[in-house]
Amino acid sequence: MTNKYESHGTPLAEYRLTRDDHRRQEEKERSTAYVRRVVDSAPPLSAEVASKLRDLLGPFPRRSPSDYMRWRVRLYCGHIQEVACLLSEPRPASEARCKECGKNPSVIVAFEPDGPFEE
């Protein structure tokens, strides 16, 4: 089965942020700040609980680079970068941390597939 990959806008073309882009960015910033407040206010885990969590989660299986699709994305901050998602995903995640300016989160406002990773 061949996956159909979505595109939204053209990351390399000139882009004007929309109201929806601003709204999504504000929502991401609010939810990220909320999660940080909750995590910061939580009591620290005991060594026993941390060990149980590590055992429960276990090691994640290593994936081959060929399991990933490269995406060219334009971020809310205006920077363009490449991100990777599993081949089975029709589109990249909704946000990323900008490698240039550090904005985190920065919603993805335009994206296009750029081809699978090679081994």
Rank of each mutant, 00 (worst) to 15 (best):
E14Q: 07
E14V: 05
Y15A: 11
R16L: 13
R16I: 13
R16C: 07
L17A: 11
L17T: 09
L17G: 10
T18E: 12
T18M: 04
R19N: 15
R19V: 13
D20I: 01
D20R: 15
D21E: 03
D21Y: 00
H22D: 15
H22Y: 15
H22N: 14
R23M: 10
R23P: 00
R24T: 07
R24P: 01
Q25T: 01
Q25A: 03
E26V: 10
E27L: 08
E27W: 03
K28I: 05
K28Q: 13
K28G: 11
E29M: 04
E29G: 00
E29N: 04
R30W: 12
R30Y: 12
S31P: 04
S31K: 14
S31V: 07
T32N: 05
T32H: 11
T32D: 07
T32G: 05
T32K: 06
A33G: 03
Y34G: 03
Y34A: 10
V38M: 12
V39G: 09
V39L: 15
D40W: 00
D40A: 13
D40T: 08
D40M: 01
D40Y: 00
S41G: 11
A42L: 14
A42K: 01
P44C: 06
P44G: 09
P44T: 01
P44I: 00
L45H: 04
L45Q: 04
S46Y: 06
S46P: 05
S46A: 03
A47V: 07
A47M: 02
